[in-house]
Design a protein around this nucleic acid. Sequence first.
DNA 1: GTTACCAGTATAATCAAGTATACCAACTAT
DNA 2: ATAGTTGGTATACTTGATTATACTGGTAAC
Lengths: 124, 124
Amino acid sequence: MQEDKRHELASTVLDNPRNQRQEVQALQDTIYVIGGKWRLPIINSICNGNKRFREIERSIPGITTRMLSRELKEMEANQLIQRTVIPSTPVVVEYTSTDYCHSFGDIILEMIKWGKQHRERIKH
Amino acid sequence: MQEDKRHELASTVLDNPRNQRQEVQALQDTIYVIGGKWRLPIINSICNGNKRFREIERSIPGITTRMLSRELKEMEANQLIQRTVIPSTPVVVEYTSTDYCHSFGDIILEMIKWGKQHRERIKH
DNA sequence: GTTACCAGTATAATCAAGTATACCAACTAT
DNA sequence: ATAGTTGGTATACTTGATTATACTGGTAAC
């Protein structure tokens, strides 16, 4: 039993080339940052060229103005997006993605891929 | 309203080559399936070769026995993992991943990649 | 014989995430 | 004039996810 533990530790820390600990940490970090129902769909929408509040809202089925408003604020604070007010008449507000925001591209792509495959799977 | 809806539908379905609607749907499906803090870390742990309950538990920082127990049950019901009881003495319980479970591999990999880059970014 | 491991369950509490609904001050098109 | 758009805010509420803590029955090692 004691032997077992020593062996397990050794195999995790020393033998495992992929370093499990670090990977779990990284995974949990990512889950923390993009957690919740709306973060990723909003990022996706803005990256797809939607700029205006109502435009983004309409592009995401099920989201409420409150949630969108809250998330946009937080994402602006975290430098994921940029909010620009154009002083035309009427005033126009535009949301655009930052470089940082684009770093989620691959994750979103993989998730879209999975979602599509999943639909196919349950259809047949 | 009726006009509007028809127009919106037309612009989405016809004009947009990447078919936004479908992609948002796929993305939201995926988020639904892997939602929560623990699903992905558990899948990752089991795919990394952890089989025993306490072994999985120890490999995921912060998880409680209750959450692990609940998630494992649900994941077994959804055919993401297999639970095997080996009637040795003492009885041994093993959790193993199914093929379906492996379909999350790319998502997890991308998320680990992002998490590592993120650590690097905030370190400097 | 007491300490520790295994595979969990039970109970209760907390707390953030999300919903529902209404409202606002501009502005615009009919 | 009035119905509708835009970019939101306010208030109240629900609920589901997660945590904390304790406990169980069996095995085994010291």
